[in-house]
Computed example of a mutant assay.
Amino acid sequence: MSFDPATHGHQFFPGSASVGVLVLHGFTSTTASVIEWARAIHRADDAAGHHPSVSVPLLPGHGTTWEELGKENWQAWRDAVDQEYWKLRARHEHVVVCGLSMGGALAVQLAARYTVAGLVLVNPALALTNRTAAYSHIAKHVIPSVAGIGSDINRPSEGETTYDRTPLAAVAQLNLLIRQAIKTLPAVTAPAMVFRSAVDRIVADASVDLIRERSAGPVEVIALPNSFHVATMDYDRGIVETASRQAVQNLMRGLDLTQVPGEAAASA
């Protein structure tokens, strides 16, 4: 499979607002699966009309070959996210971290270690529906790869660009990342907005339950009734994009992440 760097590589939208935003894609996918989400967030503005910078990194082992992904460890994904976080912190006072699926687990793990203004997560991967994935660290020695897991999308006209094979060595690393993210949840104090699809054949409902029950910060869950796992490309993408843009705009204007504009004045 050929990946065009212009479409699937690292994307960056510059801005000068007080908030910078990091948007993270999912496992075996590329930045193309979250790029419209990132563009929507970039349209947020503060009272002076300034927009946030939005960074959308291509995670190590992605956008190349499934064999290359199988050589990476979860620390490489974490370190790549850390690098982009500090670049944004150098330009902006606050950073919001957004993540789809594995990107959500990476966002949680980052928010537990550094100061984050908010989390915006779409079907974060803290529990997988495929229970046999837990044995990938053993199976990888016998079966190098299995069928790809991409394009869990309800909308027939949409397709996600992912690997057609999934390396079990990388699944084993994903499991290690998930364990780390769960373990660090009590250290997450940032407010979180979590989007959850009605049908998800990749990530289990327990993912959202873990965030709601173990995170130290406030959590709002928004249902996506007509979408599958890759909701950023599905029927409910408008809900995700609008609410995410409003959340970032709230923070840039000194409001709470999930506050409805005018709410504070109305209750005064």
Results as ranks from 00 to 15, higher is better:
Asn130Trp: 10
Gly20Ala: 10
Val171Tyr: 04
Ala268Tyr: 01
Phe27Lys: 12
Ser136Trp: 00
Thr232Gln: 07
Leu185Tyr: 08
His141Asp: 06
Asp234Trp: 14
Val146Ala: 07
Val120Pro: 00
Leu119Met: 13
Gly217Ala: 07
Leu69Tyr: 03
Glu93Tyr: 02
Ala264Ile: 13
Phe195Ala: 10
Pro60Leu: 00
Tyr85Ser: 10
Thr65Arg: 09
Val230Ala: 13
Thr184Asp: 11
Phe27Asn: 05
Ser207Thr: 08
His229Asn: 00
His229Gly: 09
Trp77Ala: 02
Pro124Gln: 09
Gln109Leu: 12
Thr189Phe: 08
Met1Gly: 05
Pro60Lys: 02
Thr161Leu: 11
Ala107Thr: 09
Gly103Gln: 03
Glu263Arg: 10
Gln180Lys: 12
Ile138Trp: 11
Ala80Met: 03
Ile211Asp: 01
Ser267Gly: 07
Ala38Pro: 10
Val203Lys: 06
Thr232Phe: 11
Gln11Lys: 05
Ile143Glu: 15
Met252Gly: 01
Gly238Pro: 04
Phe3Asp: 02
Gly118Pro: 00
Thr132Pro: 02
Val34Pro: 00
Ala190Tyr: 01
Ala107Tyr: 00
Leu126Asp: 02
Ser267Pro: 00
Ser53His: 05
Thr132Leu: 15
Asp205Cys: 08
Thr64Gln: 15
Gly254Arg: 14
Trp66Val: 10
Thr115Gly: 13
Ala125Ser: 09
Ala147Gln: 10
Val95Tyr: 06
Ser227Cys: 05
Ala181Trp: 00
Ala38Gly: 12
Val208Ile: 13
Leu224Met: 13
Phe13Thr: 12
Val188Leu: 11
Ile143Asp: 12
Met193Tyr: 14
Ser29Ala: 15
Asp164Lys: 03
His62Ser: 02
Ala243Val: 14
Val188Glu: 03
Ala206Leu: 08
Val188Ile: 04
Ala172Ser: 14
Arg212Lys: 07
Thr30Gln: 05
His10Arg: 05
Asn130Leu: 03
Arg214Asp: 05
Gly254Ile: 13
Leu88Lys: 07
Arg253His: 05
Gly99Ile: 02
Gln11Arg: 11
Arg131Met: 05
Val116Glu: 01
Ala40Ile: 13
Leu106Gly: 07
Trp74Ser: 15
Ala243Cys: 13
Thr184Gly: 09
Asn123Ser: 15
Gly63Ile: 08
Asp256Met: 13
Arg253Asn: 14
Thr115Lys: 12
Thr232Val: 02
Thr132Trp: 10
Ala127Arg: 01
Ile153Pro: 01
Asp236Met: 15
His42Leu: 09
His229Ile: 07
Ser101Asp: 06
Trp77Gly: 07
Val120Arg: 05
Ala127Tyr: 02
Ala40Gln: 08
Leu177His: 01
Val120Cys: 13
Ala80Ile: 01
Ile35Thr: 06
Leu126Ala: 14
Asp205Glu: 12
Val81Ser: 04
Ser215Phe: 02
Glu213Ala: 09
Gly217Phe: 10
Pro186Tyr: 09
Asp256Phe: 02
Ala169Met: 10
Gly63Trp: 08
Ala216Arg: 12
Gly150Cys: 13
Gln109Gly: 04
Thr189Cys: 07
